[in-house]
Amino acid sequence: MSTALSSNTARLGAIATRDWRTAKRYRFRQMLQLLSFVYAAILAFYVGRLFDAAPAELTQFGGEYFDFAMVGLAVMSVAGLGIGAFNETIMREQTLGTLEVLLVTPTPVPVLLAGSLVLPLALTLIDVTLYVGIGIGLIGSGITLSGVLLAFPFFVLTLASFCAFGIVGASITVLAKRGDPVSGLLIQATSILSGALFPVTVLPRALEVLAHCFPVYYGITGLREALLGGAGWREVGPDLGVLAAFVAVLLPLSVWIFGRALAASRRAGILGNY
């Protein structure tokens, strides 16, 4: 392993350790976050019991609303991570006064960004495991290993697409300090246009078309087809391709925007403010 790679890996570990040690010292908050799964699962379970027969819109995804909603809630959890983690990190470091000290270390900015995702990702994986493993696997219709394997690239690419938007939001936070308009709006838009809790086919035609402009649409559709619809690589291939194309464009673009925001704030002398 090259020196740069090993020292950056060590940095990622150090950031995760720092975040874990800090999180442990706010135990109550962590407990409440884990309990949010129970609340959401109960909600979806009883909404699902309203339907005697499977709605036609859900037949493509196995027909059970509970399973359908569990995938949607897992994706919303991933959305919260990708869109919110960077923003939260930047705001926290600005408020603590540690942002400038971190930027004076030789740590590359992408490593700082990626590092801030490690612990939240681990916590989100617990959420996703609860939704998919316990929600669908034990309470719902069940999952297969091949379905999980097929879902994995969709999970990674969906997270990456949300991260791209999250990094753009963090870029605004570097400059504006508070009130990033991207993250809040995107979470709201995702909850409606992704089809997390209902299929987008029930939306008005214009909104349904708009939904296709968001990468999460392809992510959530692919995840459902893989986990619930029994689809194979051939069926999910087109969705995976579109999602990968979104990520290939959006992720480097967002890192470039973040670099520009840092440079602008260095010129304006507002980097360490909050």
């Binding site: 940095r11 150090a14 010292r25 706010y26």
Partner: peptide, 22 residues
């Protein structure tokens, strides 16, 4: 003097920044 992680110990702060310095 805010520029430290107040929920970490002094030693934990130094260990963290040591790794960030390479």
């Amino acid at each position: 003097d805010r520029a430290l992680y107040w929920r970490l110990t002094g030693r934990e702060n130094l260990e963290f920044f040591g790794v960030m310095h390479g």
